[in-house]
Nucleic acid binder design. Structure first.
Length: 923
DNA sequence: AAGAAGACGTA
DNA sequence: CGTACGTCTTCTTG
């Protein structure tokens, strides 16, 4: 006895398509996903709620069926299927494939017939059946063992149609429903019924005459207008009944026995859901899945021994020096350090040796952090951490009094988050629990992820909530909590140990091992030291700036409000749209998903056309409020030592770049005069030994174009860089066939935009929009450009071809980016992937170079025992704080390391500036 | 409370 | 209809 769930795929997808606003569901590549989302969401819910043992989804095959053959008008009233919808059906099928759900179709028949056939056969096998469909014809299948779940109100709610429900709704038992539908007609199928006969009349007749045959037989006796209509439409009614009868004897490739639910392909689900950008839905899916089949995804069983200093030393010494230990700090987050949320005290480090084969319970020890650091200083086993940098900060203690620089060399031999990132840099997170599920097929059972933290406590037989069994001895409770923390960290350490082995093999396969070992891993410590250092700011100057911008904000708002006569919220695009396009009836701008854009470019354009002063005040307000917010954000993060400490993210950007958060110091304004005042507030500070001398900013000039020249081998471009001539002037003189000296600023601007656009996959359309010139002109420019620099064109083509063949692009150092969408049937997705393929080797190689340079600079500073230190990296720029007497040495070091980061076909040009502030150091 | 959308800062 | 990010506000949804 099982429970078979049969889903009408098209019917539900259609419901979802119309229930969810398409504009709210699209991927970054422009694929609409509302139907996929709605369908999948509904499926997850219904699986969760109904727990079927068997499952299949039926799909229609085209529009030609035996019904259209009998009656050409069948469903002919339906508008042609929107392409937005049909494009999503294959995606839904991909989701189902990944979920291991069988799909059944039958040529010439509809999904309903498939469902009817499977229902019959399942009933014969003794199963109960649940039919999930938005097609009312299926009500004829309902009986004591067959229930239809019928969506009402969009996709969020399913109505449970059992015999009683059908009868309550239509006044007839399920068996008579198709008779009733034949009389009443079905608009959605273009089947007209008897005029003037609705469900009430039809039910009355059917009950009085025992069914449609009876009604037809007694047609002559039925009085009134309705009876007359019945007699003139008998033919329609009989036809309706033939068409709405579901076929129950199809020859199908699959029977109920083949539909038993099977394990889902986690990797496929990740791939599919990544592509669809369904993050929450994936979590819901796994939540449902894990609850369904816990035995398929056992967690980590650990046995934790707490070692004191002496025991830890003995344990450590017994390990082979080549051992790799999965590690995770044990954080006592109940200890209030008074320094903010998420802080705590490292009470121990959990260490897990790689498990011996067949071992089901991992042995984990926890050791005191001080002991561990001591031991590691003497060499021996290395640690593998997951997302090591924050843990290194915890281990090192809080700057400025402590620094990760003090941690033992060789402490961390790998980082599983970095390894996973190098394997697949496009993921948006490298959560240990996700990776564990994905690569180990094991659920990382963590207290936080389960209601009430049950699993770990269960494993320990503890009751932390202070309930009846918990006892009220406070020290016992504290001890129990400590043990829970140790077990949680121990589980993570055990997972890391296993993950390390798997990811090392995977990374090796992808030829990324050296990148991890020689670049990212050493860089991790460099970044940690930069984060430790922070950058000094002039707080008073920032406060003055805030006031200055604040005045600008108020003044601009006042003037803007005066122009429109009401105090609208100038930060609300919605209210702005109302004022601009309705109240002031300005010409419409570019469309967005929800209306018309009010971005700065559009506002500027509108101003040029209307000269309405409101627009100027609005732009002024935007600018000022943004600058004020930037300053406020910075002020909020200034530490007690007047320094700002960012976090560099090493596993976010798919191209290999770093990113900076909390606060983001990679997007401090520079383009406008007003914005640059913020840069001037970043100043040289002091270290433990006293005042530093100056800030130094060193950046690569045109690094991406140089990499393009190198990678393409284009003789003209290489010559441009070797000649020492201004790049854009040189290119302009070639493209426009004039002497370099005769290149006008306009010509230079055009080729400059073209050159930079190349690396982004710029189109003639995009170029024309940017240059505000006709498309033909920009196309001509592109043609001329490629004519002169044919190597560039050949290279760009070659990159995409290679990536399509191999599935990935690679940088100079072999950093890969996988782009499966290059072979997508969806043009939008494919072309977006092509642009990424063009850009990834260039942006990524630049990122490689800067990282190499950073390692070199750090090594040079360390070797010299310098006080000077690196503070920031802004993609092609390094910012350092230089000690007074080290300026010349550091300048020389930085230029040497940056320029020598790679041996390219063109020189790497580095420009350096120094000054009291970041602004002054700009050059 | 959490997420989407729109806007905009950087390279 | 140009790549890669992060963060803010407003608005919508659960």
């Amino acid at each position: 006895m099982g429970r078979l769930m049969l889903v009408d795929g098209h019917s539900l997808a259609y419901r979802a398509f119309y229930a969810l606003p398409a504009e709210n569901f699209s991927t970054s590549t422009g694929q609409t996903t509302n139907a996929v989302y709605g369908f999948t969401s509904m499926l997850i819910n219904v699986l969760r709620d109904e727990q079927p043992t068997h499952l299949a989804v039926a799909f229609d095959l085209g529009r030609q069926t035996f019904r259209t053959e009998e009656y050409a008008e069948y469903k002919a009233n339906r508008a042609t299927t929107p392409t937005e919808f049909s494009g999503q059906v294959p995606l839904i099928r991909e989701v189902l494939d990944a979920m291991g759900v069988p799909q059944v179709t039958a040529e010439g028949y509809e999904a309903d017939d498939v469902i009817c056939t499977l229902t019959r056969r399942a009933r014969e096998a003794g199963h109960d059946v649940l039919v999930v469909t938005g097609d009312r014809d299926s009500f004829q299948l309902v009986d004591d063992h067959v229930t239809v779940l019928y969506p009402v109100r969009g996709v969020s709610e399913l109505s449970r149609m059992d015999p009683a429900a059908v009868e309550a709704r239509y006044g007839v038992p399920p068996g008579l429903y198709p008779d009733l539908a034949a009389l009443v007609g079905e608009d959605s199928d273009n089947l007209p019924g008897v005029p003037g006969v609705g469900p009430k009349t039809a039910a009355k007749w059917l009950l009085a005459h025992g069914g449609l045959a009876g009604v037809i037989g007694a047609a002559g006796d039925i009085k009134g207008k309705a009876g007359e209509n019945l007699r003139t439409h008998l033919h329609d009614v009989e036809r309706n009944r033939r068409l709405n009868r579901l076929v129950g004897d199809l020859d199908l490739p699959l029977g109920p026995a083949d539909l038993e639910r099977r394990p889902w392909d986690r990797d496929a689900i990740h791939t599919v859901f990544d592509g669809l950008e369904f993050r929450v839905l994936r979590e819901r899916l796994f939540a449902t899945f894990d609850n369904d089949e816990p035995e398929a995804t056992g967690g980590f069983a650990v046995e934790v021994r707490r070692l004191d200093d002496a025991a830890a030393r003995a344990w450590w010494d017994a390990l082979p020096t080549s051992a790799r230990l999965g590690a995770e700090v044990v954080l006592d987050d109940t200890a209030d350090t008074g320094t903010g949320p998420g802080d705590g005290v490292v009470e121990a480090v959990a260490l897990a040796a790689s498990p011996a084969a067949g071992e089901s319970v991992s042995e984990v020890v926890t050791v005191p952090p001080g002991t561990l650091l001591d031991l590691a200083r003497g060499g021996g086993p290395g640690l593998v951490l997951h997302d090591a940098k924050p843990q290194l900060h915890l281990l090192a203690g809080r700057p400025p009094s402590s620094s990760t620089a003090s941690l033992p060399e060789g402490l961390v031999v790998s980082d599983t988050a970095l390894a996973a990132y190098l394997c697949r840099p496009d993921q948006r997170s490298y959560d240990l629990a996700d990776l564990s599920v994905r690569h180990l097929g094991r659920t990382l059972v963590e207290g936080e992820e389960v209601e009430g933290g049950a699993p770990v406590e269960d494993q320990l037989g503890l009751d932390l909530d202070g309930g009846s069994g918990g006892g009220d001895d406070p020290s016992a409770l504290l001890e129990a909590a400590r043990q829970v923390r140790a077990v949680r960290a121990g589980i993570r350490a055990a997972a890391v140990a296993e993950l390390d082995a798997v990811l090392r093999a995977e990374l090796e396969e992808r030829e990324g091992s050296a990148l991890l070992r020689d670049l990212e891993l050493p860089l991790l410590r460099v970044l940690a030291r930069m984060e430790d250092a922070g950058i000094a700011v002039d707080v008073e100057q920032l406060q003055q700036l805030r006031e200055h911008y604040d005045v600008r904000v108020s003044e601009a708002a006042r003037l803007a409000w005066a122009e429109v006569g009401e105090e609208i919220n100038l930060g609300s695009p919605k209210q702005l749209q109302r004022v601009l396009f309705e109240q002031l009836a300005m010409p419409k701008t570019k469309r967005t998903k929800t209306g018309y854009t009010t971005d700065a470019e559009a506002l500027q354009d509108l101003y040029e056309r209307t000269e309405h002063p409101f627009l100027l005040h609005l732009l002024e307000h935007r600018d000022a409020i943004r600058l004020r917010q930037t300053v406020e954000g910075l002020l909020a993060t200034v530490g007690p030592d007047r320094r700002i400490r960012t976090t560099f993210q090493q596993t976010i950007a798919a191209t290999g770049r770093l990113s900076s958060t909390d606060p983001n110091l990679q997007n401090i304004p520079i383009r406008t005069e007003e914005g640059r005042r913020i840069r001037a507030a970043f100043v040289v500070g002091r270290d433990s030994a006293g005042d530093m001398g100056c800030l130094m900013s060193a950046d690569y000039s045109q690094v991406e174009m140089r990499i393009m020249a190198h990678l393409s081998g284009d003789a003209g471009l290489i010559e441009a860089f070797r000649s020492g001539e201004d790049l854009h002037r040189f290119v302009g003189s070639r493209v426009f066939e004039v002497e370099p000296a005769a290149v006008t600023p306009e010509m230079r601007a055009k080729v400059k935009a073209m050159s930079y656009g190349l690396a982004y996959g710029l189109s003639a359309f995009g170029l024309s929009r940017q240059l505000r010139t006709p498309v033909e002109e920009s196309r001509a420019l592109m043609d001329e450009y490629f004519e002169r620099f044919g190597g560039v064109r050949d290279y760009l083509r070659g990159v995409v071809d290679q990536a399509r063949r191999d599935g990935w692009t690679a940088t100079i150092l072999g950093r890969r980016r996988y782009l499966p969408d290059l072979t997508s049937d969806n043009r939008q997705r494919r072309e977006a992937a092509e642009r990424m393929a063009l850009n990834a080797p260039i942006q990524g190689s630049a990122a490689d170079l800067v990282k190499v340079a950073m390692l070199g600079v750090q090594a040079g500073l360390d070797a010299a025992g310098a006080r000077s230190r690196m503070l920031l990296q802004v993609h092609d720029e390094l910012v350092l704080e230089v000690a007074p007497d080290e300026l010349d040495d550091v300048r020389e070091l930085v230029v040497r390391e940056m320029a020598g980061a790679a041996d390219l076909a063109v020189p790497l040009d580095v420009s350096v500036g120094v000054g009291r502030s970041w602004f002054d150091a700009a050059h």
